[in-house]
Amino acid sequence: MAKLVQIEKKARHSAAEPEIGTMTRRDLLTHLTKIGAASLAAAMGGDAVMEMLSQTPAVAAPGADPAEPLIKRKYRYGMVIDTRRCVGCKACVVACKAENKTPPGVAYTVVLDGALGNRPDDKPLFMTKPCFHCENPPCVDVCPVGATFKRSQDGIVVVDYDRCIGCRYCITGCPYGARYFDFGENYPAVAEGTPYAGVPSPEYNQFRTRAEGKSPIGNVRKCTFCVHLQDAEGRYNKAEGRWPACAKTCTGHAIHFGDFNDPESEVSRLLRERQAIRLKEELGTNPNVYYLL
């Protein structure tokens, strides 16, 4: 059933494209009925069941902006990343490491240079790729223990290291490679006990220092939108430096961060003014990270 809804959802997302036509779910159901599947349709028990099964909410006002979340949040944090400004320097990757003290093999953002296909001269298109904090995050859906979840307050997808059992189902479930398992490896500066080894990670304001067998070792980790830099009200502040580390360092000033709920935020303005794409739009994950081309 989930599959049907997917198809229908896709149609709604690309209303302008006639390939699937304007077949609404009702049409689809009628169609099924006609071919003798009335009982099946009845068994579906309507939208409620469909919605329960599907990761992508089925009901939305006609013509509604697919980017508009269905859940009302206090903030809706996201990024607009300008690929024309990105020079592929990877300062964002290193800044995130420095901020979150991630171990080898864990990089909350990485810079891709071929994700959108190559050109005749193999000219790269750089794009930094943090977690997209999807509106419909498949990673959250698959977690058997609810250790990873989307915060209703601001849409940030987090991991509770104390609850996570390390099954890595969520890694398989993320279509964007935004999740990494912490295998417990350490950089030499940490492994060999230099003064830096004692510096804890501010992640989630938990300030954990690395210790064998202790979380987050054995857990899945991911970009947090540097949530530890929020204030008590859940706000960021660039002037105070409480701003995602990758965006703060970006040499091309390509990473715009902000609240999509605030019409005056830089990210909202950019979405209004420029054309943006999201990766794998067809999966209905509804990412909160957009790319300007």
Binding site: L70, I71, K72, R73, K74, V140, D141, C143, V145, G146, A147, T148, F149, K150, R151, S152, Q153, D154, V158, D160, D162, R163, Y204, N205, Q206, G234
Partner: peptide
């Protein structure tokens, strides 16, 4: 945060700091 707005996401709970 849990009660403030709309639908509660799957698994949402408080994380200690």
């Amino acid at each position: 945060a849990l009660t403030s707005c709309g639908k509660i996401s799957a698994g949402e709970h408080a994380i200690t700091t």
